[in-house]
């Protein structure tokens, strides 16, 4: 369970350009469910995802992960929680050009010190699960949009996280690929993973596999629907 208690995020505090991205959010996100943060751009979805995923800290308020408060932890601990507990799928695949698919997938696990052979085996298995293992040695710039996103998903799963965070994952996908993505999300749910998606794509928000939709606007929650 992820609990947010009156979470605020202010950028450039004290300066003329001060901007409040989140204005006091209180929210509970249940385990093994698919939650969608829905809202127009500028509503604070990505900022909220970053705070949930330990990528940034709130200016005020508390974040609890399985009952443990994590909002005040120093960067090292946050990173540790992030890389073991969270997998990120970005709006664009964010793969490193010039490197092979396999290397990109193994990237998040390098600093963890797992034996190379075991890591490689796991990465190949992941690529296999998403039908991109034939591309393992290809450079990422040679991939199609759909393949690149699947590789990014395998990378997000390499450390076997409990929570998958996806920021506008269908923004650059056509309808067919978007449906495929939602099938992948369904499988995550079956495997018992918690999925949090920021999106305003109706195809995502209205999907039958989504358990809860949080409506956001101007850094606040407008309502929640299940």
């Amino acid at each position: 369970m992820i609990e947010l208690i009156n979470v605020k995020k202010v950028f450039n505090a004290g300066r003329p350009s001060e901007f409040t991205a989140l204005g006091g959010i209180s929210l509970n996100i249940e385990d093994r469910k698919v939650t969608v943060l829905k809202g127009p751009s500028g509503s604070g979805k990505t900022t909220l995802l970053c705070i949930i995923g330990c990528m940034s800290r709130p200016t005020a308020g508390r974040v609890r992960l399985d009952g443990r408060e994590i909002s005040g932890l120093p960067e090292r601990f946050l990173t540790d929680i992030r890389r073991k507990g969270f997998g990120f799928i970005f709006q664009v695949p964010n793969l490193i050009r010039g490197m092979s698919v396999l290397e990109n997938v193994m990237l998040p696990a390098y600093p963890l010190g797992e034996p190379h052979a075991r890591l490689k085996e796991r990465a190949i298995r992941g690529l296999n699960d998403f039908h991109v293992s034939t591309k393992a040695t290809s450079k990422v710039e040679w991939l199609s949009g759909g393949e690149a996103q699947r590789v990014a998903i395998v990378r997000a799963l390499i450390n076997d996280p409990d929570v998958i965070i996806a920021d506008e994952p269908t923004a650059h996908l056509d309808t067919h690929l978007s449906y495929l993505f939602m099938e992948i999300v369904e499988n995550f749910k079956k495997e018992g993973k918690t999925v949090i998606i920021a999106s305003h794509d109706p195809l995502v928000c209205e999907s039958r596999i989504v358990d809860s939709v949080i409506n956001m606007r101007d850094g606040r929650i407008e309502g929640e629907s299940s």
């Binding site: 050009r97 010039g98 490197m99 290397e103 193994m106 990237l107 696990a109 390098y110 600093p111 963890l112 010190g113 797992e114 034996p115 190379h116 890591l119």
Partner: peptide, 26 residues
Amino acid sequence: ETQMRSPIERQRGIIDFTLSSLMRRK
């Protein structure tokens, strides 16, 4: 065993990435 090997494997992983980084901008 993993705990014992991890610092070396961590360096190895990072060196692997470094070498492939260098090769990319050959």
